[in-house]
Nucleic acid binder design. Structure first.
Lengths: 207, 207, 207, 207
DNA sequence: CATGAATGAGCGTTCATTCAT
DNA sequence: CATGAATGAACGCTCATTCAT
């Protein structure tokens, strides 16, 4: 990964998120990254491969973070769940653009390499969470009948939809005048609490 | 609305959902709808206007349904909320393609006519729900501190993400062999219950 | 020639003059004339044939006017020339649009029916003028060596270029504030005198 | 200006002159110039911009020629006028195609960049000529009341109309059998003499 | 004669990609 | 590895014309 590789990936991420994959031209990316147009094909092979590279990069980081939490022996199942929720929301906040692309790409269910990678990640993610849930069930702190995917769907769904509806949330709640960082922080806190509350109810534990 | 208008809109809906708006060509739509390429411009003016027509059509229907529920004097606030959840999920199940397009378009936050319509609809929707909530609060069956948008975000988020992750839900739960209609029905029921449970907890009422 | 025929021809004339033949669409004409789009093809056969009809109409009128002057036994050759100049300029002033189209069409030297008609008219015109010149030469009031086409070229060239450069003429001579009818009248008078002076010098007669 | 740029401009010039701007397709030009279709947009941005480039190129050359004559201190006003007439006719003979396009474009008085450039050039041209005339008037070799634009209109009109009526001139004068170069040379000489004679009469000088 | 609906052909333009240097 | 020039393919759209009614 040279410096230019990273520059290109970052600008591509930004543009794919704001204009869509199809709506972004290789020229757009080259211009934004300040590199020669032909370089993108040379470095990554194609526009599609650039998207793959971007996904690989971001998804690997995500995977490592999750594993770190799940394998952290010093945390109780309950703590792991709460940490995972926090980690997830933090990650989305840090990489908004990437998560928008991920969402878009999932809607358009093409049979691409990216989609296969994504599907694998999702299964891996669910299995890791599953192990945490089972750990909690053994310890009798979680309910028996937990629908993991449904629960994850609610988490990702809530966070994703909030991501794309942030402005509208702000408008509806008359918080347009609030400085952006303050609004973001408040929203983040509320979102975390909201998701955690849902999880608690669903898993049956009490904080 | 002639027959061909409808044909074109329906095929466009399908293709926009599966390939994205940008990923779908006017030729794709013309071929799928079995009409001449020029017809689409002839009828709708442009590809963009076709999308607008599609949104107008679908959003109007949605709006009327919601209003019917909210204005139904024979329902208690609690019943209205449950009916709205059911209506929403039913609507998404009926018009999967359209809701996928809506999701995609929201990610790419362009300043188009469609986006303006959508924003208006969302605000209208929230305001109607808001009136139901207030009604319930007056009757002291709902909590005082309810975050309407957050709640709606959870509902739409869960339903939307389930829409695009259905296959993966099935795979994770080893339900690949289940006949599709059965799976769909089970999922639908579970989803409705799940969302209603979250709402109950959030609004503070007991069924 | 029904009323609608004339309406169409007149609007077509206007549009062809201001937008060019290629730049004008059949729809433009139909809209401007307030008739159904398909009627133009039905009445005239095609866009090209409409242009032909327009040319036939205008050129016939022109031919009759010229013949009337040339065959007017009560005029001297000198009077005939002066009358022809006046008639020509009057005609151009009356039918500006048509003369613009004629000019445009001559530049694009396509082998169309229109062009053949136009060439014939030009030859007929030149032959009629020629007969007047010869008449004058026999009466020894005109020079022997007269280049008829060159002379006609100067007349039509001056009048045509003035037609398309009128505004610029006005601007250069600081007559922008002059009311349009006044400007037009002055210009017309000056143009007539100018062309007549050139003819006098060329033909060798004195007024 | 690369070789291909020039190739494209020259072929475009030819085609615009013979088929009109609207009547010429970008594909026509690409084929004629032996370049890829996309090259034209790649080099010039658009068909319109190609026309602009063509005008810029030709008009600059024209302007420089005129200025060289007007500023030539060794020439008397009378010589300048005669030289300008010769230069103009030579230029038109050399760049027939371009002058045809210029004429066509002026008829269709669109508000394009090209038209603005052209209007400027015409004013500049008139002002330069004007300075020569004034020079001659001070030296009392030219008349006091000279209508510069009318005079220029006659010159350009005569030359332009001769340009598009050359064949017809030949036919009327029974010179069809004359070899083309001979005809062209004779016509050129006659045209020059003709225009100069008109100017002499108008300006009042004697050669 | 009159017309709304329809269409094949072709328009100018843009795209991701390639390749000689 | 780096790049300006180039390109085939496809894009959305408009055109004059046709035809069933």
């Amino acid at each position: 990964m040279t410096k230019k590789h990273i520059q290109i990936i970052e600008k591509a991420e930004e543009l794919f998120a704001t204009q869509g994959y199809e709506g972004t031209t290789v020229r757009n990316i080259a211009d934004a990254a300040g590199v020669n147009l032909a370089m993108i094909s040379y470095y990554f092979g194609s526009k599609e491969k650039l998207l793959e590279a971007l996904f690989m990069e971001r998804m690997n980081a995500t995977k490592h973070r999750i594993e770190a939490v799940v394998n952290n022996q010093s945390l109780t199942p309950f703590q792991k769940i709460e940490t995972l929720i926090d980690e997830y929301i933090t990650r989305v906040e840090e990489k908004e653009a990437f998560y928008k692309i991920m969402l878009s790409e999932q809607v358009i269910n093409k049979n691409t390499v990216v989609m296969k990678l994504l599907k694998e990640l999702k299964l891996t993610y669910a299995r890791l969470i599953s192990s945490v849930i089972e750990e909690g069930q053994k310890q009798k702190v979680f309910r028996k009948d937990v629908d993991i995917v449904l629960m994850l769907t609610t988490m990702t769904g809530t966070v994703m939809l909030m991501l794309i509806n942030k402005d509208y949330y702000r408008e509806f709640n008359n918080q347009k005048k609030l400085p952006n960082p303050v609004f973001e922080e408040q929203l983040s806190a509320r979102l975390r609490e909201h998701v955690k509350t849902i999880f608690k109810a669903h898993l049956g534990y009490e904080s």
